[in-house]
Design a protein around this nucleic acid. Structure first.
Length: 1001
RNA sequence: GCUCAAGUGGCGGAAUUGGUAGACGCGCUGGAUUCAAAAUCCAGUUCUUUCGGGAGUGUGGGUUCGAUUCCCACCUUGAGUACCA
């Protein structure tokens, strides 16, 4: 039998074997230690995978396979985040049910994933759009509804504990996270309230609640748009106007968890940049709230400040134009100015206000507030640099210490008192905290930032006009979407009040609709459903016609957002078929949490923050065992495309005689492309350009022109169009397949190509080289590379190795298909180490010292690399090992068998095949990882680098056990040393035994 | 503006604690093999040079016997974020 490396056959064989033998099925009961490796699951888009997508999956797969070799029971699941907008858009356009689109897309994804050879346990697959899955999404929603956040115990509790408090002592002592402006009531009041009133009050405390929220409503499209679907105030699609509209929607009280979400970051090993993003998003600021009395009014202005130490520097106050007090305190003289200003700001969109930082605007209300300590009057202004939605919508302005206040004061000639010792504020504000020493501030004089802040808060508390306070930027999350393809809420409405459906009746399945668009009355798409009412007697979904508001009630029309299903899927993988619980206690106790989570950084503040919130909530409720679900998280970088460009000379370069259509026709034929490197040379040299132009003129004139006649050629190199060429037309030497390019587009059919030598290309007389540039991989740039093609041409093992070989996992790096020949020929070389035309070469020969040295340094390096997620360097290590063993003509099984285990996480198919060729009857996947033995790496001598003033000039082989002095002596005696010194005496000789010799002088 | 990350050959990148800069691969050049091509194999490939050398890891400085690595300032690129009081 001749043995060739027939990768297509081998890979299909082992993929079949793994599937049939359920090789990667993880058991929930095992003596082995557990290890949970998770990928962020994909949204199955219609376009399928490109080579950038599997990068993270390959990395996690290597790690999962490595952990199996280490003796772990590895959970490595995969599934689909399968609710989402693209399938719904497609449904709107074509009428095809999103479930069908999704199913089709998933089967494409599955085929593509399978052929890359991932060790996923597919028996645990989940799909968020599957009712048996979203049953639990709905269940969690109900739990949130039935919970409130108790600040005293600092956790979520069942709503019944709150009801009990209300009925025994009212709400004045309840320390809960809740809506603003809650009226206080006694136990008696509570017990006298109607059920409706009680429900309304409880809704103000629940962790998910209904609230009026502003949305971007597009009347023309009849739908709500996300911020990034709006460009310049109009819809991205169609350019229709968008208005702010208030809508009753579900919100999640994530703000209750702000502090715990922040603190939790300290105990998880996630990337610093990701933690930083989350910290930013949570936006904690510590300071004080201060109350200013308004003169001649009973009104009080509350502000939040991070710098209570600068309170004596306040020279004015600024309210947001929308602040409710503005109309009350504005004096008659100032009314007109204030009203004009409010009108003007209302016209400006929030985006405009944010973009325009330089224009300073505002208006004086005519009112004054009283300084809490000095009792001086402080003018009250309004200005749009203060945002109504943050803090209290009002600030105490300290121009000497805040840039925006400084600019505002300067612009309106408001005094800028200096309260900093030894600081010049004539040019700009002084916002440094560290160097701050307070002056001109009564009791704060001479204190630094920290002490002054503490003292100021203390004094404010003494006079009852302020207290220490912490603010968070994190807002509650809107949870309703006016879409069809999402999880339905387990909610019906009685008298307009939301009621939860009992958990035992879940899942509430998404109803069928005729159209996937909003209804004519502007209701969400579920408003089109005819069977969408809840029968409280039969406990089932029934026809809308039966709604009587007695036993049969309308169901919620919104659906849940994309992040709902992805916020707990990692728990569901532990026990995906469980009908009674998210996962059994045994499964959760065994798998506990994710040990390694790999995914893209674009989820930093979306999925990764919301899922932490749900985890903490479920932890409070005793559902899950940990309050953080992923110990370690790595963001894989993106693979970028290497676009190819053909350079077309401007059509204006050519003059023709002839008229109208004839010329247009000719022009198309005169798509003249100039080869990339030639073009660059022409740009550099005027003479060459003149010569080239003449040459082109002669050549073009000699081509038979059927209709027009070329009369003028005047090439302007500044007017060259770079046209994206499909990367599949380009070979590894950047040469364009001219024929393929011509057939690509009608207008290039007769295009003329001028090659590197300046020749017009006909049958191989010259080559056309494209220019290259790195861009995001995208269809529109014709630089998308499909893994299917790579697998067909080079095999999955080559693809896996190459993706890792490209560079560090976390980095952004360009894909260039040309480079894959390197790893592919490595695999062929590896194969040849084991087999040739005469069959298997491996023998029982005893390994040589060199063989052992190569093997063991490879074991050491690969193990270190995998544990450091440095997969690119271990591919190099494999290449070096193979090169060395080939040179050593190694055939020893004692070397070659363990080598396969090292390579198997990276290139599992070839490893399995050779492993079985060596006579093994079970999969390599659980073979024990070879043990590193340092004794094989011990050396007796060292090739010392000899440096002069730090520069290596030559090397010298010396025994490793040689003493420092003997080394110095030997080096100085060397004639090359004398040559380097050229008669000078060395000032100093540094000898680091085993490392280096450096001669100074 | 702020925060974070990163700047090394023609290209992707390596150098693990301060100790031989450019491993490994692509590409390129030359050669072998072949009728030819593919494939394969061998040699070379940072720049510069008067062929002795010399310079060199974004720029400028510093610490050190010795710096891609540590410190300071600056420049460039990428990512995130923003009148957040």
């Amino acid at each position: 039998m001749t043995m060739k490396y027939n990768f297509n056959e081998i890979e299909a064989k082992w993929q079949k074997y793994w599937a049939e033998n359920q090789t990667f099925k993880a058991e929930n009961q095992s003596e082995k230690p557990k290890y949970y490796v998770l990928d962020m699951f994909p949204y199955p888009s219609g376009a399928g995978l490109h080579v950038g997508h599997p990068l993270g999956y390959i990395a996690s797969d290597i790690y999962a396979r490595y952990k199996r070799h280490q003796g772990f029971n590895v959970l490595h699941p995969q599934g689909y985040d399968s609710f989402g907008l693209p399938a719904e858009q497609y449904a709107i356009q074509t009428g095809q049910h999103p479930a069908i689109t999704t199913k089709d897309n998933i089967s494409t994804y599955r085929r593509q994933l399978d052929q890359i050879g991932f060790s996923f346990d597919w028996s645990r697959e989940v799909r968020t759009s599957d009712p048996s899955y979203y049953k639990w999404t709905q269940w969690i929603f109900i739990q949130l509804f039935n919970s409130w956040y108790n600040n005293d115990t600092d956790k979520a509790e069942d709503i019944s504990t709150l009801e009990k408090l209300f009925s025994t002592e009212g709400n004045s002592n309840v320390n809960a996270v809740c809506d603003d402006n809650i009226e206080s009531f006694s136990a008696e009041d509570w017990n006298d309230f109607s059920s409706e009133k009680q429900q309304k009050i409880l809704l103000q405390y629940r962790l998910t609640y209904l609230a009026e929220t502003e949305v971007n409503w597009c009347p023309a499209l009849g739908t709500v748009l996300a911020n990034d679907e709006i460009v310049n105030g109009v819809s991205e699609r169609g350019g229709h106007p968008v208005i702010r509209k208030k809508m009753t929607q579900w919100s999640m009280r994530i703000s209750a968890y702000a502090e715990r979400l922040l603190q939790g970051l300290n105990k998880i090993d996630w990337t610093d940049s990701l933690k930083e993003s989350q910290r930013n998003w949570i936006g904690k600021s510590v300071g004080a709230s201060v109350s200013f009395n308004v003169n001649n009014h009973d009104a009080v202005i509350d502000v939040f400040t991070t710098r209570p130490d600068t309170i004596f520097g306040v020279s004015f106050m600024t309210l947001a134009p929308e602040h409710e007090l503005v109309s009350k305190i504005t004096t008659p003289e100032q009314k007109e100015e204030v009203d004009t200003y409010i009108k003007a700001t209302a016209k400006r969109s929030e985006r405009d206000r944010m973009a325009d930082v330089k224009t300073i605007s505002g208006a004086f209300t005519g009112a004054y507030a009283e300084h809490p300590f000095s009792k001086e009057p402080i003018p009250i202004w309004i200005g749009d640099y203060v945002l109504a939605g943050y803090g209290t919508g009002a600030v105490m302005s300290v121009p000497c210490g805040d840039e925006r206040d400084y600019a505002f004061a300067n612009h309106f000639n408001i005094p800028i008192p200096n309260i900093f010792e030894g600081v010049d504020i004539s040019e700009e504000a002084f916002s440094d905290k560290e160097k701050t020493i307070i002056a001109n501030s009564d009791f704060l004089n001479g204190l630094n930032y920290k002490k002054a802040t503490k003292r100021a808060i203390y004094e404010l508390e003494q006079i009852g006009q302020g207290e220490g306070k912490t603010n968070y930027r994190l807002r509650d999350a809107v949870f309703s979407r006016q879409r069809y393809w999402g999880e339905p809420f387990p909610v019906y409405y009685m008298n307009g009040l939301p009621q939860m459906i009992e958990a035992e009746h879940l899942p509430i399945k998404l109803p069928e609709v005729e159209k996937y668009l909003p209804t004519e009355t502007g209701e969400p798409p579920l408003g089109n459903a005819t069977v969408w009412a809840w029968d409280t007697a039969k406990n089932e979904v029934v026809s809308n016609d039966l709604i009587d508001n007695e036993t049969i009630h309308p169901l919620e029309l919104n659906t849940m957002p994309g992040w709902a299903g992805s916020s707990y899927y990692f728990m569901r993988y532990m026990d995906p078929d469980n009908q009674n619980e998210i996962a059994s206690k045994e499964a959760m106790d065994y798998w506990q949490d994710v040990d390694l989570y790999i995914g893209g950084s674009e989820h930093a503040t979306g999925h990764l923050l919301y899922s932490r919130f749900w985890q903490k909530f479920l932890f409070d409720k005793g559902v899950v065992p940990y309050d953080e679900y992923a110990k370690k998280l790595i963001n894989q970088g993106m693979i970028l495309g290497t676009s190819a460009f053909a350079y077309r000379l401007d059509l204006g370069s050519f003059g023709f005689d002839g008229k109208g259509e004839d010329i247009k026709d000719q022009m198309y034929k005169f798509n003249v492309f100039v080869s990339s490197e030639l073009l660059n040379r022409l740009k550099d040299s005027v003479e060459e350009k003149v010569e080239f132009t003449n040459k082109v003129r002669t050549k073009l004139a000699s081509i038979n022109l059927d209709k027009g006649r070329l009369v003028n050629v005047n090439i302007d190199l500044k007017r060259v169009h770079a046209i994206h060429a499909d990367v599949s037309f380009v070979n590894s030497s950047n040469e364009l397949d001219v024929k393929a390019f011509r057939n690509w587009r009608e207008e290039y059919k007769a295009a003329i190509f001028i090659g590197e030598k300046g020749e017009i290309i006909e049958e191989g007389n010259d080559v056309y080289k494209v220019g290259r540039d790195v861009e995001k991989m995208s269809k529109s740039k014709y630089n998308v590379v499909n893994p299917d093609d790579i697998v067909a041409d080079y095999g999955a093992d080559s693809l896996r190795l190459y993706e890792m070989f490209l560079g560090p996992l976390e980095q952004y790096k360009p894909w260039n298909t040309a480079g894959i020949t390197g790893v592919h020929s490595f695999l062929k070389k590896l194969w040849k180490l084991y087999a040739d035309d005469n069959g298997l070469k491996v023998t029982d020969a005893a390994p040589t010292k060199d063989n052992l040295k190569t093997l063991h340094k490879t074991i050491k390096k690969v193990q270190e690399d995998i544990e450091n997620f440095s997969f690119n360097t271990s591919v190099s290590t494999f290449m070096i090992a193979t090169n060395e063993l080939t040179a050593q003509k190694c055939t020893s099984k004692d070397i070659l068998e363990p080598l396969l285990i090292l390579i198997s996480p990276y290139a599992p198919h070839i490893a399995e095949e050779l492993w079985s060729q060596l006579g093994n009857t079970t999969s390599i996947s659980t073979a024990a990882f070879p043990e590193f033995d340092a004794s094989h790496l011990v050396e007796s001598s060292k090739n010392y680098p000899i440096s002069f003033n730090g520069k290596m000039r030559f090397t010298m082989e010396l025994p490793l056990d040689m003493s420092k002095d003997a080394i110095e002596e030997a080096v100085l005696a060397n004639e090359k040393t004398q040559e380097q010194l050229a008669g000078r005496t060395p000032k100093k000789v540094i000898v680091v035994p085993g490392k280096i010799v450096n001669i100074v002088g």
